[in-house]
Amino acid sequence: MRDPARILVVDDVPDNVEILRMRLESLGYEVVTAVDGEQALTAVRETLPDLILLDIMMPRIDGLEVVRRLKADRTLPFIPVIMVTAKTTPKDVVAGLEAGGDDYLTKPVDHGALIVRVRAMLRIKALHDEVQGLNRELEAKVAAQVDELQRVSRLRAFLAPQLAQAIVSAGDERILENHRREVVAMFCDLRGFTAFSETAEPEDIMAVLGEYHGAVGPLIRKYEGTLDRFTGDGMMVFFNDPLPCEDAPERAARLSLEVRDAVAALVPGWLRRGHRLGLGIGMAQGFATLGRIGFEDRFDYTAIGAVINLAARLCADAADGEVLVSSRLAAAIEAICEIEDLGERQLKGMARPAAVARLRAVKTPPEADARG
């Protein structure tokens, strides 16, 4: 509410208007006047007063109709109305209040009563404005939180929750725009899944995939990998993007071995149900182009480049329970992992042979050996 408060005085008798104007201005209020209902409606919309003193008995549009129209107009802010009437019967007072008036004064207007009622209505106006302001702030905060939740939800489709939250908290999603960066890419898929899916019931296929994804998904989150996509039994995960991590090769190595072991633990149960399945994993390190692809409300974050193709080919060549890695990645993790050099292999779909190594396990620290 403005200071000083603006009060609209409406009466078809000029002397009444002048008396109220002088009294209110002597109290420090700004006063606007109107001499009939039509002028009053126009003045309200043009000046947005903080309070209206409204005579009931007026020609053309009386005060009761004026207050009804004002209270029905949703475009106007809350403006308290004091009905001013020469009639003092309870019926007349009730009619004014039922029409939408907030209080009343009787003519001739007592100066003391005028002061008390005006101050009371202005306090109500000030409190209402304060509550409205708080509501707007709350609505803005809720809208911002909903927007953040939606952004986190979109990002969690391919990022670990903590990474998604970090990007949203930073308030800048430009990190997801197309760019080039060195990554470690990991592909894994089930061996024997094609033959299995050709003969198994759909319910059995969904059950196997549910167990497989349920075992692997938490591990991807544990190591904060970026999940590119699910393709049935296949998954692609990469590290060092969109947020960089210095230990990307180690994270990828540890993830691949834990995924291998987690799926191996599922295999006996699958065998008991007649499902002969295994897992192969391929990993490579190198530069890729990364960014969002898709359309409004449906996008993925992906990586493309030779390193991605190499990881996919290594995965396709891996036997059940085998983790094959490129020579560059093998060199990056040889200090912490047991690596077996397999020499060069001609991988399907690649023009030249590639140097390949097998990742066996994470090396046990010397102090752990001593305790053992």
Score class of each variant (00 low, 15 high):
residue 287 F to Y: 09
residue 48 L to F: 15
residue 90 P to S: 06
residue 76 L to A: 05
residue 258 E to W: 09
residue 362 V to D: 11
residue 313 R to W: 00
residue 293 I to Y: 04
residue 169 S to V: 08
residue 42 T to F: 04
residue 64 L to F: 07
residue 363 K to V: 09
residue 101 G to Q: 03
residue 339 I to P: 05
residue 199 T to E: 05
residue 235 M to F: 11
residue 216 V to L: 06
residue 259 V to L: 11
residue 277 L to G: 10
residue 250 E to A: 04
residue 293 I to W: 03
residue 249 P to A: 08
residue 136 R to W: 11
residue 298 R to A: 10
residue 126 A to I: 02
residue 133 G to Y: 00
residue 296 E to T: 08
residue 175 I to K: 02
residue 275 H to K: 12
residue 328 R to A: 13
residue 14 P to Y: 05
residue 286 G to K: 01
residue 92 D to T: 03
residue 52 I to V: 12
residue 316 A to C: 01
residue 340 E to Q: 11
residue 185 A to D: 03
residue 32 V to K: 10
residue 132 Q to P: 00
residue 314 L to V: 01
residue 365 P to F: 02
residue 71 K to C: 03
residue 285 Q to F: 01
residue 372 G to P: 02
residue 11 D to Q: 05
residue 79 I to S: 07
residue 59 P to I: 03
residue 113 A to F: 09
residue 134 L to E: 11
residue 101 G to S: 03
residue 151 R to M: 06
residue 231 T to G: 11
residue 144 A to S: 14
residue 209 L to N: 10
residue 100 G to V: 02
residue 193 F to P: 03
residue 73 D to F: 09
residue 49 P to T: 04
residue 324 L to W: 14
residue 367 E to D: 12
residue 31 V to L: 03
residue 272 R to G: 09
residue 194 T to K: 08
residue 63 G to S: 01
residue 103 D to V: 06
residue 320 D to Y: 08
residue 191 R to F: 10
residue 162 Q to W: 01
residue 166 A to E: 12
residue 59 P to N: 04
residue 253 A to T: 08
residue 131 V to F: 02
residue 51 L to T: 01
residue 267 V to A: 11
residue 187 F to Q: 01
residue 221 R to M: 14
residue 356 V to L: 02
residue 146 V to E: 15
residue 351 A to S: 06
residue 112 G to V: 12
residue 23 R to N: 05
residue 285 Q to G: 05
residue 79 I to Q: 05
residue 246 E to N: 07
residue 163 L to Y: 02
residue 29 Y to H: 10
residue 193 F to H: 06
residue 256 S to D: 02
residue 157 A to I: 05
residue 1 M to S: 13
residue 310 L to I: 02
residue 127 L to F: 02
residue 9 V to A: 12
residue 63 G to E: 02
residue 290 L to F: 00
residue 267 V to Q: 15
residue 119 R to M: 14
residue 25 E to G: 03
residue 151 R to P: 00
residue 117 R to T: 02
residue 297 D to G: 08
residue 260 R to T: 13
residue 152 V to K: 15
residue 221 R to L: 15
residue 272 R to K: 14
residue 155 L to M: 11
residue 207 A to N: 05
residue 54 L to M: 14
residue 78 F to R: 07
residue 311 A to Y: 04
residue 217 G to I: 03
residue 181 R to V: 12
residue 127 L to S: 00
residue 229 R to S: 12
residue 150 Q to M: 11
residue 290 L to V: 06
residue 318 A to F: 11
residue 210 G to P: 00
residue 208 V to I: 15
residue 74 R to N: 07
residue 362 V to S: 09
residue 83 M to I: 10
residue 191 R to D: 10
residue 271 L to G: 13
residue 110 D to P: 02
